[in-house]
Design a protein around this nucleic acid. Sequence first.
DNA 1: TTGTACGCGTTATCAT
DNA 2: ATGATAACGCGTACAA
Lengths: 329, 329
Amino acid sequence: MNIYDIAREAGVSITTVSRVINNKENISDKTKLKVESILKKHNYTPNAFARGLMSSSIKSIGVITVDIRKQHYAHTAFTIEQDFSKLGYSVILCNTGGKTTESINYFKMLMEKKVDGIILIGSIFNDQKVKKYVSKYVKNIPIVLANGHLDVDNGYSVLVDDFDGIYRCVEYLHKKQHTKIVYIKDMETYSAERKKEGFIAGMNQYGLMLDETSISEAVHGLEGGYEAVEKLIATGKEFSAIIFGEDITAVGGIKKLKEMGWRVPEDVAVTGFDNSIFAKCCEPELTSVDNKVETVASLSAKMLHDLIEKKEVSSTIMIRPDLIIRKST
Amino acid sequence: MNIYDIAREAGVSITTVSRVINNKENISDKTKLKVESILKKHNYTPNAFARGLMSSSIKSIGVITVDIRKQHYAHTAFTIEQDFSKLGYSVILCNTGGKTTESINYFKMLMEKKVDGIILIGSIFNDQKVKKYVSKYVKNIPIVLANGHLDVDNGYSVLVDDFDGIYRCVEYLHKKQHTKIVYIKDMETYSAERKKEGFIAGMNQYGLMLDETSISEAVHGLEGGYEAVEKLIATGKEFSAIIFGEDITAVGGIKKLKEMGWRVPEDVAVTGFDNSIFAKCCEPELTSVDNKVETVASLSAKMLHDLIEKKEVSSTIMIRPDLIIRKST
DNA sequence: TTGTACGCGTTATCAT
DNA sequence: ATGATAACGCGTACAA
């Protein structure tokens, strides 16, 4: 059922039908009503491809993330989808799995499908090849990074000050008289790097003892945190507080601590990052940096929409995180 | 840069270019190479809309869920996206929030964009209006329900036997000499109903005491489980084991139990459902019904793809869940 | 092996 | 207020 069929049945031209569909002016109420009734009768839906062919847009955006199974990303993607859906756009979801080839293929696909814009969630896009590809070929599509980092010309970003988040963990623990603080860093991302820098800056600021044994690495996740603490204890390193780069890793760490007979927070204070549901599942509940998922997501969506509508936008928005104090410190 | 520009620059016709792009036969290696070099030079990508106009398909599917923030849905959506991505399809993500109007709008949008198929994740689509709309208008698009339920002609489904999952919890607890078992049901879904029936069947099968006080309701989630246990204890009901309809609700319940000084599993045994990460975060780790997220997701994807390719498929696939024993029982 | 010309369904332009 | 027709970019039957 296309516009010709409708026009024929209504005894008018396709132009008239098109006018009715798109609520244009210069239509008599009488014809309008007649056409509308036939439209409804056949439950007519316009062909989006033909529309797209004219306007070279089908009102859609691409959302690329490493893995939507990660709570934080899912939360971000959800908010973005909801916001854009209200604006009449649909969202194409892409999970790269962190792989270069996949990432580039997703960009290609999104370009073929002529999305109006792209949002990148998370900071796993610093692969040189990806960067090169994007800055070379994806020139005319606006890109917004939600909590990510990517040096390209058309790259705008909304991010949380990860540096500040961890810095304030140190500050808070220092106020609580902790002097032996260690940091467990997970994942090789830009964000993780910034967090580490925040830790170092904080430790230096408050004159706390800091050397290479103060920072250890963990595979991201529950098991990662568990193993990292296991290793840390094995080294004999003394500490009264652990700062983790992510909640879920902290939960794994606490698990190990408790197994070893350490009490939290009496023997060791622990902080996490994300203020996710894991912080509340945990026992004791986890003090965590709230990195404002929804705010970041909504601002990213708004920014991309502004870019699509050619409005002026500032290239970077930085959000200050909050420290949520709970029972683990 | 369109196919005409390429043709002009290569000194051939658009047909030839089209042939090269689509790897058709009857092309001399010489022309093929020449065209390919120009294609690469301009990083030409065909216009998907024009293609879609011809084939009336743009190789995409819709994935509709209530809320991608729910771990289980995110996991399912992830697997589906990965599987379809490998087949050259892209995925449009829709979160209905459980609202009727939104749901219908998403169906409309997916039809306009002429997706090749739709997967519904979860069992929150039993709204009468939605059902009516779908069975009336979405006739020619194959629909697969991943762990969901919807009575429509073109609705195929892959689901986990929720009934059996809970039934086996009862069976297991009975073997462990529990006689006073209660069930905490959350959410008003088809799935939740089936679980409840499994509980009743199990209790009857093993001659365990069962009345209206054996089943209580909880709002889904951490707080929901917490409050449900609070209320349960307040009623004075005696119990030695609690079966929960979802892991996260169980985690909330255990939290309350521990606060009240009950030991798990010594004083109360607890089981969850989903075998999610929450089961492993929990202390003690949670015995949980593994409802095979990935299997369900992959089979749903395969089923939809088969339907798209007009292959024969059985209308329902039922997966048997596993009971994963951990320390909470 | 290669090219011409038409159709896909819509919107926009110009004429009536 | 309404209509005829071009244009969007591609695939393809048919012609050469």
